[in-house]
Design a protein around this nucleic acid. Sequence first.
DNA 1: AAGATATTTAAAATATATTTGAAATGAAAA
DNA 2: TTTTCATTTCAAATATATTTTAAATATCTT
Lengths: 132, 132
Amino acid sequence: MVQVFDLKAKVKNSRSASCSPGIPCKIPPSYEISPETLETVKEVMDEDVSDTVAGLKALADPMRVRILKALRIADLCVCVLVELMDCEYSKLSYHLGVLKKAGLIECTQDGNFLIYHLTEFGEKKITSFGIF
Amino acid sequence: MVQVFDLKAKVKNSRSASCSPGIPCKIPPSYEISPETLETVKEVMDEDVSDTVAGLKALADPMRVRILKALRIADLCVCVLVELMDCEYSKLSYHLGVLKKAGLIECTQDGNFLIYHLTEFGEKKITSFGIF
DNA sequence: AAGATATTTAAAATATATTTGAAATGAAAA
DNA sequence: TTTTCATTTCAAATATATTTTAAATATCTT
């Protein structure tokens, strides 16, 4: 997934004086990008974002956000969540699975029941993401 | 989108002593949910999460995160971004559109060029969401 | 053991999001 | 004023995510 940029290889015969080194297009005269800045930009763009994105994806769903908000108040078993969310078990289970895989929630078994609770990681996430 | 819960209407003939009021299933004996807690849970679950989720969705994509990271370093025109991301204009444009619609970025026109920059809102978001 | 309950899993159906490629737009240069 | 350039828009193709329904598990109760 890590991309290596070789912009120089793409430079066309660009005649503009304001063209940034390694950038084939003629960038507008109103702003200049120093080679140093461009280097920094390339660096941050090369950083791996897959963890960040995976976390965001797990959160980016109304059902899942509501589940997290609920679990922030109390640990809840699936049967109670099903009633609160007014949905099928299988549907709820799918979303619980997504949250679990993302490490945001966990469950403990009590006989037939599974009681879900926020992980510390999940707690932190929803706090920093401003979900209350 | 706001759902109203009427759990009482759903109570079946539940015989378990540990059943929470208004919850048809027999919740496990290892934990009790007080009616007050349950009320609080219902309240937070009824809150509207659509803005939260829309914001998260806009962020939950590797390309978009990389764009935001880049714009955090410098304002960039589309032609430069195209090179840095190594992708088609139309593809980039789609993602820029998503970020723009979410209010995370804006652009200013300079002749033929569009120079994109983070909004203050976008700046705040990516900071609080731990995207650096 | 047999039946009931709570929950998950699997597979198909559906919905949503992204990518692609071509055409459209609008400003600048020739 | 025709051409070129930077960019967006559109529609079709593709990919990904979610929902649905039925069946599978596992634990309890009898």
